[in-house]
């Protein structure tokens, strides 16, 4: 078992105290020295979204926290996770951590929880986001849905 999964599972320990007190997990996206995606994990509905750009000082920690939330959510009784992923840039360090997060979701699915993952790619797809989504799908073992959206014109990407 790799370290990422191990860290997520070790978190079991603290969970018993938190039962039924799952909270939403929200991070506002930012672009400063590093780029953080927006994260919105809804504890009431299981509807989750990660979007924007991902170039992080500690990508491993960032996505591990999200994976831990998923794991806690299921243990607290949540039975469906619907995750929308809508990236327009991520570096390779982030992609590696993202893959680990998706593998945690796959394990959660194997445990009997309904897991839906939607991967959004823009039209036009200048950054080849669809290709990245397909690569994740092949690697993580989840049946990720590929969904195209129209890219709105904006001053800044």
């Amino acid at each position: 078992m790799n370290n990422f999964l191990q860290d997520v599972l070790l978190n079991d320990f603290t969970l018993s105290k938190q039962m039924n007190t799952m909270e939403d997990y929200i991070i506002a996206g930012s672009r400063d020295i590093y780029f953080s995606p927006s994260v919105n994990l809804n504890a009431a509905t299981g509807k989750c979204c990660i979007s924007g750009e991902s170039y992080l000082e500690e990508p491993y920690e960032f996505y591990k926290k999200i994976a831990v939330w998923f794991s806690d959510y299921v243990k607290a009784g949540g039975n469906t996770i619907a995750l929308d992923l809508k990236f327009n840039y991520f570096n390779t360090s982030s992609s590696r951590a993202l893959l680990e997060m998706l593998r945690v979701l796959r394990d959660i699915q194997h445990g009997g929880t309904e897991v839906i993952v939607n991967w959004y790619y823009p039209n036009p797809d200048d950054d080849e986001i669809l290709m990245e989504g397909e690569d994740f799908r092949e690697e993580c073992g989840l049946d990720i849905n590929m969904i195209e959206y129209e890219l709105e014109e904006s001053g800044d990407k």
């Binding site: 790799n2 370290n3 491993y60 390779t92 360090s93 690569d135």
Partner: peptide, 25 residues
């Protein structure tokens, strides 16, 4: 793409910050 997937799927460790797939990307 196949090479990238193969490298990315190999063991990850917290102290190795890079993806080891930068050159492939």
């Amino acid at each position: 793409r196949e090479m990238k997937r193969r490298y990315r799927s190999s063991e990850i460790t917290p102290d190795h910050k890079g993806g080891n797939i930068g050159l492939i990307q």
